[in-house]
Design a protein around this nucleic acid. Structure first.
Length: 346
DNA sequence: CATATGGA
DNA sequence: TCCATATGG
């Protein structure tokens, strides 16, 4: 999922930090990416997600609620950016994902009847569905919490990058690297508090710290332009194209630097999709909107309780405790600072 | 992924 | 304060 720039980016460009080091910064978070990861991670050992008494999945709400409060408490100002319409050349990728999900669902049923717990968990993670209802409910919860969200016209990563470029956000936040191709000034990955990540297939957890990748530092280090970075991404493969067979990050960088012109390099590398010029233009100039405001509001405790406790069977004491933390974080970290002049007029 | 809890 | 383990919905 997403463009795979992992092996292109030198370790020296990945700046490890902790959440405290991001205090005061507005971060435009890829909502889809975030919710999807909660759905993948917040599960019982056999892969069963958290559910309310009606059997509706609540893992995404639990993750969103507690993580957002943690970030706010540490002084991070989160803005969630939701996907709009995908570009039409993403249809193939989306169909493939749907197909893989159906296969995983079948395998999950098999594993469950066979009583294979680890197998079941594996396939449950591959069978994740983020429904439009779940997305709508996440937006409702954010509103109740007083946390801003933005509806992107196209890809959320593109909108987040635009917000960073305008200076409305300090960085885009996602596990994927796409926002760098979309021109985000910075990308923050691994933005979580506890920083635990399960190693695939093993019962081991490793500590993972947030990392910041600055676009200008990356381009300078590689000696390329943003346009050339887009070309490399396309050669390596994106959600919109397969990438050139047998070419890894080193050769992709070489080809792009020696040829110079991004579109010529893409073709010289052997990328054959006929719609590839459109993909290049989409990364360079994606649909975005300036019609948003980033405003933090006081948490609406009644509404939070209605959604989490009444509707979805969250523990009222736990929720109340978290809401208290959110109220304090709002006062101390999120509330717009009033200038002395504003105070005089109000 | 996150909180809660109990023992070192 | 740290760690391991259980539980959250």
């Amino acid at each position: 999922m997403g463009v795979n720039l992992r092996d292109l980016i030198p370790d020296s460009i990945r700046v490890e930090t902790d959440v405290k080091g991001l205090k005061g910064n507005t971060i435009a978070l890829d909502a889809y990416n975030t919710l999807y990861q909660f759905l993948a991670a917040i599960r019982q050992p056999d892969g069963t997600p958290l559910m309310d008494r009606m059997g509706r999945v609540t893992s995404h709400l639990s993750g969103l609620f507690y993580r957002t409060i943690n970030l706010a408490e540490e002084g991070v100002r989160p803005v969630y950016v939701f996907d709009g319409e995908p570009p039409r050349f993403k249809a193939k990728e989306l169909e493939e994902r749907a197909r893989r999900r159906e296969q995983a669902e079948a395998k999950l049923a098999e594993a469950r009847t066979a009583g294979l717990v680890e197998e079941a968990r594996k396939y449950a993670q591959q069978a994740i569905r983020l429904s439009s209802g779940m997305v709508e409910e996440a937006k409702k919860l954010l509103e109740a919490m007083g946390i801003p969200w933005v509806q992107a016209p196209g890809e959320g990563e593109a909108q987040a990058a635009y917000m960073a470029r305008r200076g409305d956000a300090w960085a885009a936040g996602s596990q994927d690297y796409d926002s760098l191709l979309f021109g985000s000034t910075r990308l923050v990955r691994n933005l979580a508090i506890t920083g635990r990540r399960k190693l695939p297939g093993k019962d081991l957890y490793v500590e993972v710290k947030p990392e910041v990748i600055e676009l200008s530092a990356l381009l300078k280090n590689l000696g390329i332009t943003r346009e050339q970075l887009i070309a490399i991404g396309i050669i390596l493969g994106t959600d919109y194209n397969e990438g050139a067979k047998g070419i890894g990050p080193k050769r992709a960088l070489n080809i792009v630097k020696s040829i110079g012109d991004p579109l010529k390099a893409i073709k010289a590398a052997g990328v054959r999709e006929p719609w590839i010029d459109e993909v290049y233009n989409y990364f360079l100039n994606p649909p975005v909107t300036s019609d948003y405001t980033i405003t933090f509001n006081p948490p609406n405790e009644r509404e939070i309780n209605r959604i989490l406790v009444e509707e979805h069977d969250f523990n009222p004491d736990r929720v109340a405790k978290a809401v208290d933390r959110l109220k304090k974080a709002y006062r101390e970290n999120l509330k717009a600072k009033q200038s002395r002049l504003d105070a005089w007029f109000s």
